[in-house]
Amino acid sequence: MLTLQVQKPKLILEDGRRTDGRRPDEMRPIKMEVGILKNANGSAIVEMGKTKVLTAVYGPREMHPRHLALPDRTVMRVRYHMTPFSTDDRKNPSLSRREIEISKVIREALEAAVLAETFPRTTIDVFSEVLQADAGTRLVALMSASLAVADAGIPMRDLIAGVAVGKADGTLVLDLNEEEDMWGEADMPIAMMPSLSQVTLLQLNGNFTPEEFRAAIQLASKGIEELYKLQKETLTSKYSAYKEVN
């Protein structure tokens, strides 16, 4: 492509806004829905700006091959996958090194929330399909996975909400977009179980000073609080009829 941009664009404009018009502490518009697939035990779709991830959860069910089952807890198997049409250029549909790693990271974050000892000798399969990729797919996948697990009725300590914080042109920004992800100085995805205030996922690409790191955590928790509220609303709305019971 001839139009390929090789020069770093200005990430923070003169009026203090970002390339997509957001304030530094503003997230992209979010949409969530649960229970959208009939065949899966639990399912959810989460959209954050242009990023869109669909997750299906199957289980707890009997594990095959049998010898891989664990005697004291359930085995979580997570597949994070980007559909070939999720990016500008066609993505090879086979699992890449990056996808295998993200699958592992999401699995470990979910294992912290799921009460795995409730269903020994079984497996829970989580399939996350990225339908459209535009920065922050791992966290959107993790959030949709946590909603889908809750929708499947699997006991869990808390829902997981996550958002990325980063540094673009020296300013801390919440919920990075594609350009900030590519050209920014730092990218730090954080996921938490808000009601227990525990962190289940934290990665950092780039560098922060200790002060910046603290400020970044503060900024992220603000966003996470907002996302968590939205997740609860999403689940509640599915059962709104149940509020006036008997």
Binding site: A150, M156, R157, L159, S195, L196, K243, N246
Partner: peptide, 12 residues
Amino acid sequence: DKIRTLVLPGDL
């Protein structure tokens, strides 16, 4: 005894 409320994972 009849009051039932909807709860979600992580609710106190």
